[in-house]
Amino acid sequence: MRISEGGPFTPEERKAAVLALLIAAGIAVFGLMVQQWTGPSLGPWGGDQAAASMPGVLDAQPVASSAF
């Protein structure tokens, strides 16, 4: 391993590292923007389907208490 006065890395290696960090930051920012635009996927329960009842599914009811 060659150690120069500028540190253990060559200028090309430092340039490649900075470029990799910039690309990773760009991908992360793009992902956050897409997440803000789209919101979570709720499948059939999202949007217009939120109020629709599902056939064969009963509403939640409390369990009848029995005398012990």
Rank of each mutant, 00 (worst) to 15 (best):
S65W: 11
A24Y: 02
P8H: 05
A51L: 09
M54R: 13
S4H: 04
A25W: 01
E5N: 11
A60I: 07
Q49K: 10
S53E: 12
V34M: 10
F9V: 02
E5K: 11
P40W: 07
V63S: 09
G7L: 01
G46L: 03
G56W: 00
V63C: 05
S41C: 09
G43K: 03
D48S: 15
F30T: 14
E5Q: 11
A67L: 09
V18F: 08
T38G: 04
F30I: 09
V34G: 05
L42Y: 14
A20R: 09
S41L: 09
Q61T: 12
G46R: 05
D59M: 07
A28S: 12
S53V: 13
K15F: 03
A67H: 08
G43R: 03
M33Q: 09
L22Y: 07
W45Y: 15
Q35E: 07
A50H: 09
S4V: 01
G47H: 06
P44A: 06
L21T: 08
D48C: 09
G31P: 02
P11K: 03
L21P: 00
T10I: 01
A17W: 03
G43E: 05
F30M: 10
F30G: 13
S66K: 15
W45Q: 09
Q36C: 12
A64Y: 06
E5H: 06
A20M: 05
A50G: 07
A60G: 10
G47M: 04
F68P: 14
E5V: 09
G39F: 01
S41P: 04
A28F: 10
T38Q: 12
M33N: 08
A51N: 13
K15D: 11
M54C: 07
G31V: 08
D59C: 06
L42P: 01
F30N: 07
R2W: 00
L42V: 06
A17M: 11
A51W: 04
A25C: 11
